[in-house]
Amino acid sequence: MDHDERLRHASSFGTAAPAYAEHRPDYAQAAVRWALEPAPGWRVLDLGAGTGKLTGTLRAIGADVTAVEPDPAMLSELLRTLPEVPALPGSAEAIPLPDGSVDAVLAGNAMHWFDPAVAAREIARVLSPGGVLAGLWNVLDDDVDWVAGLAAVSASAAIGPRDTPAGWRAEPLFSGTGPDARFGSPVRAEFPHGQRRTADSLVATLATRAGMLVMPPPEREATLGRIRAFLASRPETAAGAFTLPMLTCVLRLRRR
């Protein structure tokens, strides 16, 4: 994906901010705790916070969290659902916080949208010495047969390269650790997670993916139609609520 295409995808979420807030999953608490484990304290920046899915999990485990989000519509949803959280307009490339003001910077399903070289400088600037940078991604567990089938019929716009465990493991997700050596070597971990869905709400969830949001309407409706037909054909998903098997995957780095 070239620079312009990446920006088009990254800026698409505001068009579906209420649906994103309603349908996207939170993050496994065990994954968030592991991400913060080496941090010198619990002053946390949720960077690229979207509508606050990770922000809410951070608050639930007792972190002192500040959210930063570039999209006004997404930020508005965050402020509506979590009015007690300090939330600021800004981006990974221009973080509106003082030097050394946080112990950890976490990004939920967002780090792949950052400009790595610029973001690495800014994240290192706001982190205290020894602070943690961690990206978290919710991916579908396609070791489960019906989930693998869903990925096959969904097309990459709905379930993309980093949306399954194997794809996530294979993809270089952050390259801000170059010759300037601001961060140590990355480590990865994966944690079981799940989300209660119905066929309709799972379709609505997949419709909030960037690839779906930028797709021409006829193509998007055709893709969603294939997904609906597949879910109606499977005993696991055809009637009532089910748990969507997921993993929360974490990439963690330490500030030197």
Results as ranks from 00 to 15, higher is better:
residue 78 L to F: 02
residue 76 S to I: 12
residue 173 L to M: 12
residue 184 G to N: 01
residue 148 A to V: 14
residue 86 P to R: 14
residue 105 V to H: 00
residue 106 L to G: 04
residue 188 R to C: 03
residue 137 W to C: 03
residue 171 E to Y: 14
residue 112 H to W: 01
residue 182 R to F: 02
residue 86 P to N: 12
residue 72 P to A: 11
residue 115 D to N: 07
residue 165 P to T: 15
residue 66 T to A: 11
residue 120 A to Q: 08
residue 116 P to W: 13
residue 115 D to K: 05
residue 115 D to R: 08
residue 162 R to Y: 12
residue 91 S to W: 10
residue 91 S to Q: 08
residue 123 I to V: 15
residue 85 V to F: 07
residue 149 G to H: 12
residue 184 G to R: 03
residue 94 A to I: 04
residue 83 P to I: 13
residue 86 P to Q: 09
residue 143 D to P: 02
residue 154 S to D: 10
residue 176 G to L: 11
residue 167 G to I: 09
residue 122 E to G: 04
residue 166 A to G: 09
residue 126 V to P: 01
residue 115 D to Q: 11
residue 136 L to D: 09
residue 162 R to G: 06
residue 159 I to D: 08
residue 175 S to V: 05
residue 99 D to G: 07
residue 147 V to R: 01
residue 92 A to G: 11
residue 189 A to V: 05
residue 189 A to H: 10
residue 87 A to F: 06
residue 127 L to Q: 07
residue 175 S to T: 13
residue 187 V to W: 05
residue 166 A to C: 10
residue 187 V to G: 05
residue 146 W to Q: 02
residue 184 G to I: 04
residue 141 D to E: 13
residue 138 N to K: 09
residue 105 V to G: 00
residue 163 D to T: 06
residue 139 V to A: 10
residue 163 D to A: 11
residue 132 V to P: 00
residue 90 G to S: 07
residue 104 A to F: 09
residue 174 F to Q: 02
residue 125 R to I: 06
residue 184 G to S: 02
residue 165 P to F: 11
residue 79 L to S: 11
residue 72 P to F: 13
residue 154 S to V: 00
residue 148 A to I: 11
residue 190 E to F: 03
residue 167 G to Q: 14
residue 136 L to R: 07
residue 187 V to N: 02
residue 66 T to R: 14
residue 111 M to I: 03
residue 131 G to H: 05
residue 143 D to V: 08
residue 86 P to C: 14
residue 98 P to C: 04
residue 179 P to F: 07
residue 139 V to F: 07
residue 128 S to N: 04
residue 168 W to H: 06
residue 102 V to S: 08
residue 148 A to F: 09
